[in-house]
Design a protein around this nucleic acid. Structure first.
Length: 314
DNA sequence: TTGTGTTTTATTGCCTCC
DNA sequence: GGAGGCAATAAAACACAA
């Protein structure tokens, strides 16, 4: 085990400088890079076994301070150089020098390694190891940075996604509300139609509806003859769910719903061309009984409850 | 002072390249 | 096959709270 280059008097400072950053010799970094090829940066040996220590080590090296001559120096010397090899931390200056070099190029060519080792008074292998470990640390930090970037990107996307989910739920609720409203409307409509049907079926077939109205009202009633089969024919048209008029009523209400910005889409794939035409014709509010309107009744009722005013003359 | 966690230095084993 | 890089790991050095 070599180490003879460091004089015994220098050893205590050498050891002290190994204890930690605070104990290290401070020296402006610039001086490290102005050293040229001469071994101007020769810090304390950090390894116990140095092959070149006799060549480069010496009391003139800047990283060695002058030592006080002390009785314990020889003991420390023996202790230091005869103990099993231990890890020695690099000084702050050595680390800074290596860091600067690493910033320039994080890979180490053989010539550069030799030069750095010379300048720092380290083994080339130590320099190589330092670069190796430094690359590993750099990689870890890079991974952490990448992780942070990905994390923030993920958070942004997540926030967007959650916002869209909320909006989706809101729209779904709106759709449900409008669907319910539509169902209620249709229920009301069909129950009204049923009551009209009941009313019509309870009237005596031969009895003119005009019996139940006043004379003044009778004058308003159309004089067009209205036979029983006409009525049944009309009724058949009205209440036949297969008839286009029936579906017109449905379409009508659908369109009303659509008018109130309802997003319900009736499946029109089953509609014939005629039905589609009827659908477009019924964009305007229509009487619930368009066929009757075309036929013999007068003044369509304001509501289904007003069916008593409906009459057909014989 | 001591226990514990972190950082730094160094080793080992494997892989790739020339 | 040797040199060099990398990942995993050991172990010493260090920091710090109790």
């Amino acid at each position: 085990m070599a180490g003879g280059g460091a004089s015994g008097s220098n050893l205590s400072v050498l050891l002290q400088s190994q204890r930690g950053p605070c104990a290290a010799v401070s020296q402006p970094l610039d001086t490290f890079f102005l050293s040229g090829s001469s071994p101007s940066f020769l810090g304390p040996r950090t390894m116990v076994s140095f092959e070149d220590v006799n060549q480069v080590n010496g009391s003139t090296r800047p990283f060695f301070r002058s030592f006080d001559h002390d009785d314990n120096v020889e003991d420390e010397y023996d202790e230091y150089f005869h103990q099993p090899e231990k890890k020695r931390r690099l000084t702050v200056d050595q680390v800074q020098f290596l860091e600067k070099s690493f910033e320039v190029e994080n890979k180490l060519e053989p010539e550069r390694k030799i030069q750095l080792a010379k300048d720092l008074g380290l083994q080339p292998r130590q320099v190589a190891i330092w670069f190796q470990n430094r690359r590993a640390r750099w990689k870890t930090k890079q991974l952490e940075k990448d992780y942070d970037v990905l994390q923030s990107s993920f958070n942004t996307l997540k926030a967007d996604y959650e916002g869209l989910l909320k909006e989706n739920e809101k729209l779904k609720a709106e759709v449900d509300l409008l669907t319910d409203r539509l169902h209620v409307q249709e229920k009301e409509k069909s129950s009204s139609e049923l009551s009209v049907k009941d009313a019509l079926s309870q009237e005596p077939a031969t009895k003119p509806i005009c019996d139940s109205v006043s004379e003044g009202e009778v004058s308003k009633i159309s004089t067009v003859p209205c036979k029983q089969e006409d009525i049944s024919s009309a009724k058949s048209d009205i209440f036949d769910s297969d008839s286009p008029h029936y579906t017109d009523g449905v379409h009508s209400s659908l369109l009303e719903a659509a008018d109130s910005s309802y997003a319900f889409e009736p499946d029109q794939s089953d509609l014939s061309q005629d039905e589609e035409d009827n659908l477009s014709r019924n964009l305007l509010p229509t009487c619930i009984f368009p066929k009757l309107e075309e036929a013999d009744y007068t003044d369509p009722p304001a509501s289904f409850e007003d069916h008593a005013f409906w009459s057909w003359s014989y």
